[in-house]
């Protein structure tokens, strides 16, 4: 099975062409965000205030990288557990966010919000943080520098290897993978 190259920003046509289980190589601009940044974004959304980043058509990578060694763009940067951002994600999809990258299960509410707003969830390989860092060509903090590893970074990535976990039709690669390989002990 080949890997398909895709580029941000996403539109509905691209999102609808992705199916759970597809392996892709992602390039372009993406934004980082994890627990603390999401909490702040959610507070702004609730107050009806603009966000520090326009998320329309964009992709958020759930990651808190290690500090960059001198001369490097970024430190190690593998995915964190996505489920901790489930409470915040539907409101961001409603604002036009088209994709998220992380690892682990999403809630039924997030899967439903992705169906409703046409968005997709990608899995990166948890723990492959030094390998993934090689795909990150530029990094700059765009919001909340005081949060350190939890700040929002704008990343330029090239050929970031990902698997589509949940597509916008309710497909779920975690469930499909288990069905294919479960056995009787």
């Amino acid at each position: 099975m080949g890997e398909r190259r895709i580029t941000t920003p996403f539109d509905d046509v691209l999102v609808e062409s992705l199916t759970s289980g597809d392996r892709v190589l992602l390039s372009g601009t993406i934004y980082t965000g994890r627990d603390a940044a999401h909490k702040r974004l959610a507070e702004l959304v609730a107050a009806g205030q603009p966000l520090p980043v326009d998320l329309s058509g964009q992709v958020i990578y759930y990651v808190g990288p290690t500090p960059a060694k001198p001369g490097r763009v970024i430190g190690s940067a593998g995915p964190t557990t996505s489920g901790r951002m489930d409470a915040y994600a539907p409101a961001l999809f409603a604002l036009g966010l088209k994709g998220t990258i992380g690892k682990g299960l999403r809630s039924p509410e997030v899967v439903e919000a992705m169906r409703k707003h046409r968005a997709v969830y990608f899995g990166a390989v948890g723990g492959a943080a030094a390998l993934i860092a090689r795909c990150i060509k530029q990094a700059r903090v765009t919001a909340y520098p005081e949060l350190g590893p939890e700040a929002i970074y704008e990343l330029q990535v090239a050929d970031f290897p990902l698997t589509v976990i949940n597509d916008c039709r309710g497909g779920d690669q975690y469930a499909a993978g288990r069905r294919a390989y479960a056995c009787a002990p």
Binding site: P65, T66, G75, G78, G127, A130, L131, A133
Partner: peptide, 28 residues
Amino acid sequence: SPTGREVLAQIRENALIAATEEVPLCQD
């Protein structure tokens, strides 16, 4: 699983990069 083998290969390559370049295996 071919995908499973591919993931395990990535994990092993990651370990090699981390050891050679003295960078963390995992961001956590």
